[in-house]
Design a protein around this nucleic acid. Structure first.
Length: 395
DNA sequence: TCTGGGGTCCTAGGACCC
DNA sequence: TCTGGGGTCCTAGGACCC
């Protein structure tokens, strides 16, 4: 783990709502809600009145009757996101996107070129504001985790650096919900034990946390509470699944209706897959029932594909097999996603001959570091020229 | 808090392989 | 013949994130 502060977490504020306020002056300074049935995003003026994203539209309007409700414009948000990520990548090549509106940037190599990380962060904020017209908050710290927590604390439209010598003083008073990976269930489990702050978590030993929360979450939380986070900023991560879903209302819905909805969903997903030049093998049918329980059913094809036909057929089989369950509980949401994306089709061009030896071994290690071991489970194609496929690496 | 649409990662059992 | 150890893949569920 680096002992220097090099990591930025940049996070656009109330992203969808800020784009709407940017594009329509009448919305500026006023409570804005994006999305009708459910709040997709809301401006800080609406947040001040208690409106939260994922809240039901009725409740949101009750809390804030004078809110201006606008329908989402996904194309505008995608365009704004692209413009902001261009600025990120112009700042440093080491950019790891987390979602449409946030990313980690490693600016460690820039000290001589562009100045200290806080100066880089301030310039970045200024540029996003000037060129894209959006407010953005940046957290600056020695680790990804601390940078993310810092941006959360600094929101909205802020900049906060956590100096190495005050990391624990910054971290320990925070409520556990601030920790990345602590949601309602984990927070409730901790609260039952009287644990509310990160400092209290840090006083528990790892076995106690593991028995309380399970192996993965327990070890994760123990590390974070002790400020251990060795993860590097990863460049070039690709989506591993693509999906689409649709809420149906309480029904009833005939099998033919469901099949028609399913066909539309598969069409949408495969269209996006082809546009992104991705293929996939695992089709997952997602169901939500009238009692808000959920189920998934999945099937893995022998060959990856982006064609509508085979994926549609597999999804149809899954739906037919789930009809008894649907008849029993009543379906309210249907979703399709395709996973196992792209493996076997990844091609990396490396600047050396792909012959066995120390150079190749080192390159494979570098690939593992950058993309994770999963990138190699189906073999990575190495080539000297784009478009030229080299033999598979041995496993 | 009564619920949209898009994702990630982890766990666990069973099948199957050497 | 009824038995080890190690590994991958598939399926299903669950927690979490924006």
């Amino acid at each position: 783990m680096s002992s220097e502060v090099t990591i930025l977490h940049a996070d656009l504020d109330a992203f969808y709502a800020s784009v709407e306020q940017r594009d329509d002056p009448r919305l500026r300074g006023r409570p804005v809600i994006v999305g009708g049935g459910v709040v997709l995003a809301c401006s800080y003026e609406a947040k001040a009145r208690g409106v939260r994203s994922a809240m039901g539209g009725r409740q949101a309007r009750r809390l804030c009757p004078d809110a201006l409700v606008v329908p989402p414009r996904m194309a505008a948000y995608t365009a704004a996101s692209r413009a902001v990520f261009e600025i990120f990548r112009h700042t440093t090549p080491l950019v790891e996107g987390l979602s449409i509106d946030e990313a980690f940037l490693d600016v460690g190599g820039l000290r001589r070129l562009a100045g200290a990380p806080t100066a880089v962060a301030a310039a970045l904020r200024e540029r996003v504001r000037r060129e894209v017209g959006l407010p953005i908050t940046v957290g600056v710290a020695r680790t990804k985790f601390l940078a993310k927590v810092a941006s959360g604390v600094a929101k909205p439209d802020g900049l906060l650096m956590v100096e190495p010598e005050r990391e624990l003083a910054f971290l320990h008073p925070l409520p556990v919900e601030r920790l990345w990976g602590v949601g309602p269930v984990t927070a409730a489990r901790l609260r039952e034990r009287g644990i509310r702050t990160v400092g209290q978590v840090a006083r528990l030993d790892e076995p106690a946390l593991v028995s309380l929360l399970g192996g993965g979450a327990g070890r994760h939380l123990h590390a974070l509470a002790h400020n251990r986070d060795p993860r590097a900023v990863q460049v070039g991560r690709r989506r591993s699944s693509m999906g689409a879903q649709h809420a149906l209302g309480r029904g009833p819905h005939s099998p033919a209706d469901l099949d028609a909805v399913l066909a539309g969903l598969v069409d949408r997903v495969t269209g996006r897959m082809r546009a992104a030049r991705r293929t996939g093998r695992t089709v997952t049918l997602r169901l939500r029932f009238a009692d808000y329980t959920r189920a998934t059913r999945s099937h893995t094809l022998d060959e990856p594909t982006a064609q509508t036909g085979p994926l549609r057929a597999a999804a149809g089989d899954l739906l037919r097999a789930a009809l008894p369950l649907i008849a029993e509980r009543g379906v309210t949401l249907l979703g399709v996603s395709v996973g196992n994306l792209g493996s076997g089709h990844t091609q990396l061009t490396l600047p050396f001959a792909a012959e066995p030896g120390p150079a190749l071994d080192a390159a494979v290690d570098a690939v593992r570091d950058r993309f994770g071991s999963r990138a190699l489970t189906r073999g990575v194609l190495l080539g000297r020229d784009p478009g030229v496929e080299m033999p598979r690496l041995p496993d």
